[in-house]
Design a protein around this nucleic acid. Structure first.
Length: 448
RNA sequence: GGCGCGAUGGCGGAGUGGCUACGCAGCGGCCUGCAAAGCCGUGUACGCCGGUUCGAGUCCGGCUCGCGCCUCCA
């Protein structure tokens, strides 16, 4: 079995051949922790979660690194606005991020480095870039000199000339070349800063991922992932920094990028009110339904994320849980067709189709395979019973004993053909968001 | 303006030179006190215009529309 992945560097699907089959390394750009993650931020988390699960199936050791960006001018701005301490903002936001991503069924990364813990490494790399002649100091800034790297632009497909021609902002006067970008910048007294050979300051955005990926995965590693919008400038600049500092031909062997996401047919924007945060969606829907909705579209496709889509996904999971019941799946139950689909550049929609196929078969083997495959994709992680009793955060608390009592009363009424009373009870519970289902084995309830 | 991605049935969404994707919704039927679930059957597609081919959603060219990026902003 060969794993194929689309490599942004070649813009082709390639067979994955790890640098070292005994230890695969993957780095994914994580969040800047100044605000709750929106659904667009969740897509790469879920996509690369599936990828790491797959890599772990194929290789004995996988190190998954996903950073937390806690040095950023947006964080600084938020702190100035609200008066909340920076560390408090970043800790609080990171905590919510962890909870939200866990609710989506994403396993935590093996290493989750924070930028603030790696400033020394960033300074070292910046010094190296000055030594190699790829960077220079100017007015307290250190800038990467783009013309010093002939292959700059290979990842994004932009040439330096095009970038300059298309530039929409004024070029800072201290730049040698209009395309040069910041490695280090000075901080004033009110802004977080660290001592450096160039005075008190803070790192530019791109250098953190260069420094931290190297710290945990080495100068060359297997896969670097993130959203498509990171290809330029973030990943292009990371690549330039790391390669030049290390005199290396490459940084990551494979670069993977997930497609962008819209909400309800429109570009997500706060002004349009269609800016879904994961945190808010989790009040309305089970996390696994959101996860399945995200996986229903292939990761490189643009995606229109809708609440209807989550509701659909939820009904699908309802059905699968009804079919699988409480079977337990073992390793040998894993459906090979599902693994094959995922191995073809993470074809999750095809893998999901395979789960549908198993759901329709009706045999015990198929039920176990359904559960095993769903579990592998981070779905159906709880019992059917727990799944059906999930309730939205807005729902009022319901007394389960009272429900059971009403069910008993209704069944007595039904036995006596008192269907008026039976329907009253159904309506009463429906009004509370409780749905009753009469089956051969008795009456069960779930939250609507 | 430059670079890139996308366009499949009512909706979601794979696929790929010739053979039903699949799911949801719809319609007809069975079952059911009601409801749900389940079962059987069933219709609808490949943005537009050319070209290559015995044959094209599938390859080539052009066009239209949508979206992303074009530097200190993840």
């Amino acid at each position: 079995m060969t794993l194929f992945i689309h490599n942004t560097l070649s813009r082709k699907k390639e067979a994955f051949e790890p640098l070292n089959p005994d230890h695969v390394g993957i780095y994914v750009c994580g969040p800047t922790v100044y605000d709750y993650a929106h659904i667009g931020n969740a897509r790469p988390v879920v996509v690369f979660d599936v990828l790491t699960r797959l890599l772990r199936r194929f290789y004995p050791k996988v190190t998954y690194v996903r950073n937390i960006t806690d040095i950023d001018d947006k964080i600084n701005a938020a702190s100035r606005e609200t008066g909340e301490d920076i560390r408090s903002i970043t800790d609080r936001t990171a905590k919510v991020y962890h909870d939200d991503m866990a609710a989506l069924g994403a396993l935590p990364p093996d290493v989750e480095p924070r930028a603030t813990d790696h400033v020394a490494q960033m300074i070292t790399m910046t010094e190296q870039l000055i030594e190699t002649g790829n960077a220079y100091e100017a007015e307290g800034h250190v800038l990467f000199n783009v013309p010093s790297m002939p292959e700059y632009g290979r990842l994004s497909g932009h040439s330096r000339d095009e970038l300059i021609a298309g530039a929409r902002i004024d070029v800072a006067p201290y730049k040698k070349d209009p395309a040069d970008f910041v490695l280090w910048k000075p901080s004033d007294a009110d802004t977080p800063g660290w001592d450096s050979p160039w005075g008190r300051g803070r790192p530019g955005w791109h250098i953190e991922c260069s420094a931290m990926s190297q710290e945990y995965l080495g100068t060359e590693f297997d896969i670097h992932g993130g959203g498509q919008d990171l290809i330029f400038p973030h990943h292009e600049n990371e690549l330039a920094q790391s390669r030049c500092a290390n005199h290396s031909d490459r940084m990551a062997k494979y670069w993977m990028h997930n497609g962008y996401l819209m909400a309800e047919g429109e570009k997500m924007s706060k002004s349009l009110g269609n800016f879904y945060t994961v945190h808010d969606l989790l009040d309305e829907f089970p996390g696994e339904a959101i996860r399945l909705a995200l996986l229903q579209t292939h990761y490189r496709q643009p995606m229109d994320f809708t609440k209807d889509g989550i509701a659909d996904a939820r009904r699908t999971l309802d059905k699968w849980h009804r079919i699988a019941g409480d079977v337990t799946a073992a390793g040998e139950d894993m459906p090979q067709d599902l693994i094959d689909a995922l191995s073809d550049d993470l074809n999750t929609p095809k893998a999901i189709a395979e789960l549908h196929r198993l759901a329709g078969k009706g045999t015990d083997n198929a039920r176990r395979a359904l559960k095993a495959g769903a579990n592998f994709m981070g779905l159906m992680g709880e019992t059917a019973d727990d799944w059906f009793k999930w309730s939205p955060a807005t729902a009022s608390d319901v007394d389960e004993a009272a429900i059971d009592a009403l069910i008993t009363e209704r069944n007595d009424a039904r036995a006596n053909k008192d269907f008026t009373r039976a329907d009253e009870i159904r309506d009463q519970l429906t009004a509370q968001g409780i749905v009753l289902e009469d089956a051969a084995g008795g009456t069960t309830w779930k939250r609507g």
